Amino acid sequence: MSNPTAGASGETYDQTVNTLATLQDQLVGMAEGFVRALPNMVIALVILLITWIVAKFAMRIADRLVGSTEIRPSLKNLIDTVVKLVIWLVGLMIALIVVMPGMTPASLVAGLGIGAVAIGFAFQDIFENFLAGVLIMLREKMRIGDIIECEGIKGKVEHITLRETYVRKLSGEVTLVPNAMLFKNPVEILTDETQRRHEVVAGVSYDTDLDHAAEVIRKAVEGVEGIDADKGVDVFATTFNSSSVDFKVRWWAGSKPRDMWVSTDKVVRAIKRGLDDAGIEIPFPYITHTFKERVPMGNAPGEAK
């Protein structure tokens, strides 16, 4: 009479032996495949090393060619990045084809296209900033060194990359601004020109000859060092204020923020000095009280007469 337990144990033993044999065959196959692919992997590493060397020399050549021209620094950075990116893409494609001989350039490009769509959805913000960085570098305005203001951020553009722009605030801090923000929102470039117009308000008393006051203010401002008198000084009477007639004074000076503060300081001092010398009053605010009934001016009840 046969033993059922012994038969089941024998089948389990045979299955275990077959599994171990299959696993051993797979490991041997993988090891043989790795050994066969080892020369190709070494060649791929050599190709990557050559790609690194070629990219390094290509950037030096590009820097020399671009350095002899009056190209903008931001556009120079874009050319360096594109040259490096193209060389590395070609080198990586060649290395992949060497490691996987069955892969063709067409299949690799097709795979990259499908992968690019998937990556594009996953990293939409990153690619948005990348494309915005390219467009910012291509456009002529907003050069490195300009003072800009955008969405409450005001400072000097120090560096532009394909991802973000480094803006040094006037108080010294640096702000990393995403390129998409600078591309999609209005950007005010304060130093697009070397000069811009500044203005200040000056008030004189109501009993002043306004023509005389305007001439005094104009001569005072024209004598200030650092302003461009050739572009003219504007003095406009603009407002009947509570205690003065106000003039808006406009002049041209340097476009940098410090130039604005320095020239404004000199202009205010010159206007004050000129009006004082001419005997023209710069009034304090006056308050007039009106009463419906007559206010007695005599002694209050109970006081001694």
Score class of each variant (00 low, 15 high):
208 T>K: 01
157 V>F: 04
190 L>M: 08
219 K>Y: 03
264 T>I: 05
7 G>D: 14
48 L>E: 05
123 F>G: 08
169 K>F: 00
173 E>W: 00
51 T>P: 01
163 R>M: 13
125 D>Y: 08
14 D>A: 14
32 E>P: 00
266 K>H: 08
86 V>Q: 05
32 E>A: 15
56 K>W: 13
227 I>L: 12
276 D>T: 14
183 F>M: 13
144 I>K: 06
276 D>K: 14
290 T>G: 07
186 P>C: 01
95 A>Y: 03
101 P>N: 05
36 R>N: 09
8 A>L: 12
223 G>D: 06
127 F>Q: 04
7 G>F: 10
181 M>S: 12
199 E>P: 03
43 I>W: 12
128 E>L: 15
167 V>R: 02
178 P>M: 10
20 L>C: 06
284 F>G: 14
220 A>D: 01
18 N>G: 10
163 R>I: 10
274 G>P: 01
5 T>C: 01
288 T>E: 10
136 I>S: 00
305 K>L: 13
254 G>E: 08
1 M>C: 07
59 M>H: 01
183 F>H: 09
296 P>S: 09
273 R>A: 12
222 E>L: 11
240 F>E: 14
32 E>T: 12
227 I>A: 03
290 T>C: 07
105 P>G: 03
300 A>G: 09
205 S>T: 10
80 D>A: 11
8 A>G: 04
195 Q>H: 11
242 S>H: 09
302 G>Q: 07
263 S>F: 00
297 M>Y: 09
65 L>Y: 12
263 S>E: 03
166 Y>L: 15
237 A>W: 03
239 T>Q: 10
245 V>M: 14
142 M>Q: 13
28 V>H: 13
87 I>N: 01
137 M>A: 14
108 L>C: 06
7 G>K: 13
258 R>G: 00
110 A>P: 00
184 K>W: 06
18 N>F: 12
12 T>N: 09
145 G>N: 02
276 D>Q: 11
26 Q>R: 13
209 D>S: 10
270 A>M: 00
239 T>N: 09
285 P>E: 13
211 D>I: 05
233 V>D: 02
3 N>W: 06
103 M>F: 11
284 F>K: 15
191 T>Y: 00
11 E>Y: 08
83 V>W: 04
